[in-house]
Amino acid sequence: MELTRLLACLAVALPVAYGAPTETAESLHPQILDAMKRDLGLDAEQAVSRVKRDIDASELIGQLQASAGDSFAGAWIGEHDEKVNVAVTDETSAEKVTAAGGNPVIVSNTLSKLEQAQEALDNTDIDQASIMSTDETKSGIASYFVDVASNKLVIEALAGSLDHAKELAKKVGLSESEFEIRTVEEMFTTSATNVYGGDAYIIGGNTRCSIGFNVGVGFVSAGHCGKTGNKVTYNNQAMGSFAGSTFPGSGDMAYIKVDTKTFNLMARINPWGGSDKNRLPVRGSKESAVGASICRSGSTTQVRCGKVTAKKVTVNYSQGRVTGMTRTSACAAGGDSGGSFYTGDQAQGITSGASGNCEAGGTTVFQPINPVLSAYNVGLRKAA
């Protein structure tokens, strides 16, 4: 059917399509109606009408796209007026959109051109950097898509990758007027398992330790928990492996790299009570003074608190001497090793060893966090 005849037919059908809802549309499931009321502010009658209008608008857009050919540049339903906006690149097509009951928007770029640029990006090896340096610069390309309303290819990126995003846009042949860079605060995540400081993990299937703090593409923990290359699991799921480990000697520290597609590394600590919303935020690593209050989280004794009693402590373990520890009056037990030491929202260190117990009273030493970050050239994941 040629475009003129098609538009004439649609001009007659459209008022009916945007009128009273059909019997089928009135059969929306009660839970859908409740969700539309909650999330879109619509009552039952408005929700049913909205669904009917949206379906009919999609049919109109599909027909116009097929008929307009290369002139078609996308379409969308207006946020407030609910008009069917149809972007085209020439006046002739715009007149035909008007005749069909749509709202024409004349633009410069065809949809096919922008989609070809997007496809070129799909075939480009994009380096997805994370929080990997001590300056805490967050970088990464979060997403990219054709925004039909702005008639541009939009690339969303973290603050540290804005220049990279521009380079990518130009690499696929787009001029400044054909793309837009938008800054976002975080990368997208899947429905992966959330991982927190203080949580338990298993080394080699037979040793349990606790997570210290999430950093870069992994977490830090105690060096005595495992050696470089040792595999780890979390809730019986393969998680990653030790990328580095020091013990004994100049510290008790380790960096475990994690499969970040399966696990979300949260900038928070497990307080062992309440929902995910109650997890304790980590916002920095300002070192506390001797005499300051301090708490720790671990998978055996959970949360215990005390005071900092000494710094730069040398500890003689059976495996050898370890220097640079901080001593506290907080207690700990087996399995707490590697767990988080913190004051308020400031990370302090990684649980190393203890004497005594949490029944009669004990003493714990921890590996200060800042030397660990420097040793592995990683940065803390920080909560907003």
Rank of each mutant, 00 (worst) to 15 (best):
G223I: 04
T193N: 02
Y234T: 02
D199V: 04
I202M: 11
A200W: 01
V220T: 14
V215K: 11
Y234L: 12
S241D: 11
C225G: 06
V217A: 14
V215L: 10
G197F: 08
K231G: 03
S241A: 14
H224S: 06
V195I: 15
V195T: 05
G218D: 08
M239G: 00
T207R: 13
I202A: 04
A238F: 09
G218T: 07
H224W: 09
Y201T: 01
T207S: 13
N230H: 14
A243P: 00
K227W: 11
A238N: 12
N236T: 11
S191Q: 11
G204S: 01
D199Y: 02
A200H: 07
G240W: 04
N206H: 13
R208T: 14
G212V: 12
Y234R: 08
V195F: 03
T207G: 00
N236P: 01
V232K: 08
I202Q: 12
V195S: 03
S241N: 12
F213V: 05
G226M: 09
V220K: 08
A243V: 01
R208Q: 14
C209F: 05
S241K: 10
F213W: 08
C225N: 09
T233H: 06
F242G: 00
V217Y: 15
S221R: 06
G240F: 04
A200M: 08
G226W: 11
T233D: 03
C209W: 10
G204P: 00
V215P: 10
Q237D: 14
T233I: 06
G223S: 03
K231D: 13
N206E: 06
F219D: 07
I202D: 04
S191A: 11
G205C: 05
K227R: 15
N236A: 07
N235R: 12
I203V: 15
N194P: 01
G223Q: 05
N214H: 11
Y196T: 00
V195C: 04
I202H: 04
G205L: 00
